[in-house]
Design a protein around this nucleic acid. Structure first.
Length: 881
RNA sequence: GCGCGCUUAGCUCAGUGGUAGAGCAUUACCUUCACACGGUAGGGGUCGCAGGUUCAAGUCCUGCAGCGCGCACCA
């Protein structure tokens, strides 16, 4: 056993164990195993993606769950993979083409797709490699890609099935069109943004009443050439008389007069108060106008091209202008024509394409739509708790969306993706995977990427794997894709497997910077996780993120959290190093007869930590889990037990020393296992270094910590045999409390903590001889006298505990005034506490109605404070004599 | 507009009716033979506001305010 270095250096350690785990196939899932199954499918990251902190959070959580399940004896599958990210990937590859002076049209569809595959082979594995660096325990042999041949077959078959069920249909509808990506989008891919915009007011003349004008408010004057009607509310007395008449549309102005006439129609939804109460109707470029247009048989005049430039029908002046330029130009024209009335600043919400970050253009086009299958089953599963959300408030959000569900626009005008299995010949249409033969042409569109990822939980598994691992246990993902992905997977699951795809859905928070802003490339506030791993280690990054990611809350990322993780790893490292310096691991049993109160106390604390940890983890309270571990390990084990144990370790009594080492090994080997899911690398390293891979029995260890058993509660039998009970626990706790008070005395009397001084302890009851050693060490006393008859000199600083009185006799002159001041302060504090308790006890209603244990607790509190007061007061009196 | 959250120490957050907590930051002391990526002891909170229920409210109820998110949307 080589001595380990003073500071933990994660880089080599992490590389080494990653390789070891992979070489030994530690994470291979065996579908033939007799063990119960636990499974997770990874939310497939975008194949163009690189690891960001959101991935770190999300995948660390999954890794923790997967590793715990493995240690608990489940046959565990964590299935990794990526999705083909239609738009994003196509955009990336088009960019590389542009660098060569080419467009995708120069290559043609087939060649272009070849290029995408080339790109994917070269760069698509990056994020998978990054996940490995993070320590993810995925079954890498099962990595899947949504464009894999087998997976693609499932996608195509699903389309055909839904088509045959009549749930997929084609329709010419108003869709969300992204003029940059040049494709239709689903409603979910549009997000509203508030814009500081302009409201333009212009007037139109009534053809039948020359000289009478209506003023119209609009934010989009460039669409005036596309207007084919004017709508007013029939109940609006100001305008009702004009219904049925015609207005003269001002743009384009060089048309024959009869082509400028547009009818004035009634529409209930036009509001009196809004704008002028007169609405221009552009049925080809606005969703609500489309409905009005259909209702009144208005013309559908398209004036905007797919790329958001204006076309010929917009008029010579606007033609070829971009929609934004056209807006300015149209207003100029209105001013020249004398039709402009006024413009004013106006704030409103506009739908943006999430992918390209430009305003969506509502556009009339032929698209494929899906009526969602298995809606009722999906809703029911969540309502009756078959599928549970963590935190559960997301169930409400899910329900709300399901209740207002709209048909899904699934066609995309892209080349990269699953091509729609629809074939045309003249007027004939067929839905099938392969071409029906000569003369048939396939629909040019591909399917929305989510139309493939909604099959992910089962399309990634062959039949045998599904039998063992489907439905999966839990899905861990971001709330942003609750509708995009989670809800759709539930419906697909029921439709195609007859079962839910997962039992639990854990929704993470969003990772933000420490100012609460979303991570974004343009803000430059998004640290590269790989840099953090290089600097601090993957374990530190994982622990830091976990420790600051409470359930249901966003995560404010601060590099300090990672630093804390690193410090923690270093502490773990050093306390193990300390153990190593005490000599070889001895495979010896703990002897109950040699246990001190310190030993019993730390075993009891461990038991409590395990219990709390398991409860927290069952409810997915990860942050709390890390806090429990942190507290136990640092504040209890390191701060108190290790320090107390030094008295035995530095002693000549070999039996006691060995027994202490046995306790330490018991605690450490258990603690390392508890930490392993959170800190996989350092715990494996220490597990091997410390020799626990060899020295622990099967019920407490294994060759690798990955397969070592998860610590369950310490058994009642163990506790009885080792005397781990309330009395022993409280004795040690009171001893530590007394030590803290004594250290406080030192500080208040300006005695440095490293100076050994004389203490005299006057125990209240029998004081076991073996308790003195650790007490003395913790006090840094030289000597520590145990003297039940001690009669302190006047003014000796002292403190009281249920165990007895502790005195710190000072050599030389005692500063009486300082001591008086200290006591006065203390007495003040005690009196406040007493009056609080007395107030409560004096209340007859409290004495009558409060439960007995609360009453007793308060009575005891009062007695305790009272004896402290008596003690302090008598010292004070003595001092004043 | 509808819905869902949040508001506790300087900061970030725990705290499901019974003595207000953690980490960071801060103050003082300590370079003590595991660790300065460390140790010891402190200071710091009328728990957003106003009512109510209760013997007892940070915790339950009502109202209000501020912040955030989701959905919908009016040109």
């Amino acid at each position: 056993m080589a001595e380990i270095p003073k500071a933990y250096e994660p880089q080599e350690v992490e590389k080494h164990w990653n390789q070891y785990w992979l070489n030994n196939s530690c994470f291979r899932a065996n579908p033939d195993s007799a063990k119960p199954a636990y499974s997770i499918v990874i939310p497939p990251p975008n194949v163009t993606g690189i690891l960001h902190l959101g991935h770190v959070l999300n995948n660390t959580l999954q890794d923790v769950l997967a590793r715990i399940a493995g240690m608990k004896g489940f046959e565990t599958l964590w299935l990794p993979g990526t999705d083909h990210a239609g738009i994003a990937t196509q955009v990336v590859v088009e960019k590389t083409l542009r660098a060569e002076g080419l467009t995708k049209h120069d290559l043609g569809r087939e060649k272009f797709i070849e290029r995408v595959w080339e790109w994917k082979e070269k760069h698509g594995g990056i994020i998978i490699e990054q996940l490995k660096k993070l320590g993810c325990s995925c079954d890498w042999a099962r990595e899947r890609f949504t464009m894999d041949a087998e997976y693609s077959r499932s996608v195509t078959e699903t389309f055909i099935d839904l088509y045959n069920k009549g749930l997929i249909y084609r329709g010419k509808r108003m869709v969300n069109w992204c003029p940059v990506s040049m494709t239709a989008l689903s409603d979910e891919e549009v997000s509203m943004k508030t814009l500081a915009d302009t409201m333009y007011y212009f007037k139109v003349e009534i053809a039948e009443n020359p000289g009478t004008f209506l003023t119209i408010a609009t934010t989009r004057p460039e669409t005036i050439p596309g207007d084919s009607g004017i709508a007013v509310n029939p109940k609006d007395k100001r305008y009702a008389e004009f219904i049925g008449k015609h207005a003269i549309r001002p743009l384009p102005h060089k048309l024959p007069p009869e082509e400028k006439l547009i009818p004035i129609v009634p529409a209930e939804h036009v509001e009196f108060e809004f704008g002028t109460g007169v609405l221009k109707v552009t049925p080809a470029h606005d969703k609500t106008d489309f409905e009005i247009g259909k209702q009144h048989g208005l013309d559908f005049i398209e004036v905007i091209n797919a790329n958001a430039t204006m076309n010929r029908r917009a008029g010579k002046d606007l033609e070829n202008l971009d929609r934004d330029q056209a807006r300015v130009c149209a207003w100029d024209l209105l001013e020249k024509l004398g039709a402009a009335v006024k413009k004013e600043p106006y704030e409103h919400n506009v739908g943006f394409s999430e992918r390209a970050d430009v305003p969506v253009e509502p556009r009339l086009s032929e698209q494929w739509f899906l009526k969602y299958p298995s809606q009722d089953k999906a809703r029911q599963a969540v309502v009756n708790g078959d599928i549970r959300f963590y935190p559960d408030r997301w169930a409400k959000v899910f329900n709300h969306w399901m209740e207002n569900i709209q048909d899904w626009c699934i066609s995309r005008q892209l080349w990269w993706g699953h091509r729609i299995p629809i074939w045309y010949r003249d007027d004939e249409i067929r839905c099938q995977a392969e071409s029906p033969g000569d003369g048939w042409t396939q629909d040019p569109d591909v399917l929305d990427t989510w139309f493939s990822s909604w099959l992910w939980p089962f399309a990634t598994m062959d039949e045998q794997t599904q039998r063992k691992f489907y439905p999966t246990s839990v899905l861990v993902t971001a709330p942003e894709i609750l509708f995009f992905w989670v809800a759709r997977m539930i419906m697909a699951g029921f439709e195609y497997t007859g079962e839910k795809p997962f039992s639990h859905v854990y929704l993470t928070g969003i990772v933000r910077d420490k100012l609460g802003r979303k991570m974004s490339k343009s803000l430059g506030n998004s640290p590269d996780p790989l840099d953090l791993i290089d600097k601090y280690g993957a374990d530190a990054l994982r622990f830091g993120v976990m420790r600051s990611a409470p359930l249901g809350q966003d995560v404010l990322f601060d590099e300090q959290h990672v630093e804390l993780g690193r410090n923690f790893c270093n502490k773990l490292w050093n306390v193990c190093r300390f153990r190593q310096l005490q000599g070889e691991t001895v495979k010896s049993q703990i002897n109950p007869d040699l246990l001190t109160s310190d030993d019993k106390w730390i075993l009891a604390r461990l038991d409590a930590a395990i219990a709390e940890l398991n409860t927290a983890l069952n409810e997915y309270r990860f942050t709390e889990s890390t806090h429990i571990l942190y507290r136990f390990f640092w504040s209890e084990y390191c701060d108190w037990y290790v320090e107390a144990a030094k008295s035995a370790l530095y002693n000549d009594d070999q039996d006691r020393k060995h027994n202490t080492l046995a306790v330490i090994d018991f605690i450490l080997s258990t603690t390392l296992r508890l930490f392993h899911p959170f800190l996989p690398f350092i715990t494996e390293e220490l597990w091997q270094d410390m020799g626990y891979n060899k020295s622990c029995d099967k019920d407490r260890g294994d060759e690798s910590i990955v397969t070592a058993p998860w610590p369950e509660w310490i058994s009642a039998e163990f506790k009885t045999r080792f005397g781990i009970d309330r009395t022993n626990h409280d004795f040690a706790a009171q001893k530590y409390e007394l030590v803290t008070q004594a250290r406080n005395l030192r500080r208040e009397t300006n005695i440095p903590s490293n100076k050994k001084i004389r203490f005299v302890f006057k125990p209240r009851a029998h004081w076991p001889q073996e308790e003195s050693a650790s007490f003395k060490l913790l006090l840094n006393a030289e000597p520590l006298e145990i003297n039940p008859e001690f009669n302190p000199p006047k003014g000796t600083p002292t403190t009281l505990s249920p165990l007895g009185e502790l005195y710190m006799p000072l050599e030389g002159v005692i500063d009486v005034e300082a001591e008086k001041a200290r006591l006065t302060k203390e007495i003040e504090k005690i009196k406040t506490e007493i009056s609080k308790v007395e107030q409560r006890l004096a209340n007859p209603a409290f004495m009558e109605k409060a439960p007995a244990h609360v009453r007793e607790e308060n009575l005891k509190r009062k007695t305790d404070w009272q004896s402290k007061l008596d003690h302090a007061q008598s010292v004070m009196n003595h001092l004043c004599e």
